[in-house]
Amino acid sequence: MKFREVNHSIPKVDGRGLLKGASAYTDDLAVESALIIKLLRSPYAFAKIKSINTKKALKVEGIECILTYKDVPRIPITRAGQGYPEPSPKDKFILDNYVRYVGDEVAIVAGTTEKVVDDAIKLIEVDYEVLEPVLDFEKAIGHKSIIHPEKEIYTMFPMGLDVKNNVACSYMDTMIVGDVEKTLEECEFVVSERYYTHAQQQTAMEPHTSTAYIDVQERLNIITSTQNPYHTRRIIGEALNKPLRDIRVYKPRIGGGFGAKQQVHNDLFKAIVTLKTGKPSKCFYTRKEVNESTFTRHQMRIDVQLGADKEGNLKAFDMQILSNTGAYGEHSLTTFMVAGSKLLPMYNKAKALRFEGK
């Protein structure tokens, strides 16, 4: 039997264009006159901005605008591009008067060239009140430093947010089958171990890049290297208090993502600059910014207790996870839930199962 498709070499639809170097990626599609956006970033892991002075920087020729937390809407969002209602606490603002990690955004600077923007950033004067950071996720619960003291943050449904204890979410006393303690006592063999997984940086070939312009219908158009254009559109609309009908998000070819582009990163910055100035703008992260100021896969501590009979059949499975979601709670619930939901079905013949985490 002969097939039209099976066992045949099928040319990649966009392969020829990519090999010829045709414009395909976000930076290729940005207009040449687009304003260049860069961020002044925090040198501290945890600090409060006492004052910020941009007067000298604004005098640099070619600077179009400089925005601080005083100049942007204060609407709590989550940058995580997920389902809706969102399973992440809304604990992030476009800019805030608190910075929570080295590389957190302090000011948005837009100008005609990269050089004038770099020059202006050096002239911004910031007075910080340096606070004690939480650097060890195993010591975060009950730490004297409360990372999110703001009152506006919330969740769209109960997920165990405990701001006073630096807990973004928790999943306790819910995923339990059978009597775990009793079954473990009855097992001939019990093994208890603690494991750690490290944070991982995905490192796509194309860094986080986005560009924006206003079209003839006065809609905000966003071209961005993202894995979730629909969520990006919704999050931008929420953060800027702008109707979705006035926002278009276009996802061209992306040079890798691996989950790192399943969030909103620099999209908000160029969106608000374009709305403020009426001019096209673009923001592209350096490799240093990608490593320092975007997301990683979450570091975890995993405690596992297994009980088996003398034939080696697993009878009890107990899994407790502590997940390091970092300074903000994006993907906090989803990430550690997946760690359990992908594993537990393999042990569906066990007599007792329990999965919990924070």
Rank of each mutant, 00 (worst) to 15 (best):
K164L: 11
V130P: 01
L135P: 09
Y196F: 13
F189Q: 13
I222H: 01
G160S: 04
V130I: 12
L131G: 01
E132S: 11
S210Q: 06
A168E: 05
I146D: 05
P158R: 04
D127R: 10
K151I: 09
P149N: 07
E188Q: 14
V216D: 15
E181I: 13
E150V: 00
Q202N: 09
K139R: 09
Y171I: 06
Y195R: 12
V130G: 04
Y196R: 15
K139I: 00
V134D: 02
N165S: 05
V167E: 08
S192M: 12
V190A: 02
I176R: 04
R219P: 04
R194L: 12
G178F: 00
E181G: 09
D173A: 07
K144D: 13
T209I: 13
I176L: 02
G160M: 05
I176Y: 00
P207F: 05
M159Y: 01
T197L: 07
Q200N: 12
E206P: 03
G160A: 05
Q202P: 07
E193I: 14
D215E: 11
H208W: 07
E188D: 15
F137E: 01
H143F: 11
D179L: 06
R194P: 08
T197W: 01
Y196H: 15
V177D: 05
Q200M: 12
E186W: 08
Q200P: 04
K182R: 13
E152Y: 06
E129S: 10
E206Y: 02
P207I: 02
C169Q: 04
V134P: 00
S192Y: 12
L184T: 06
P158S: 05
Y171S: 09
M175W: 12
C187G: 04
M159G: 00
E188I: 09
P149H: 03
T174P: 08
G160Y: 03
D162Y: 03
D162L: 05
E218P: 06
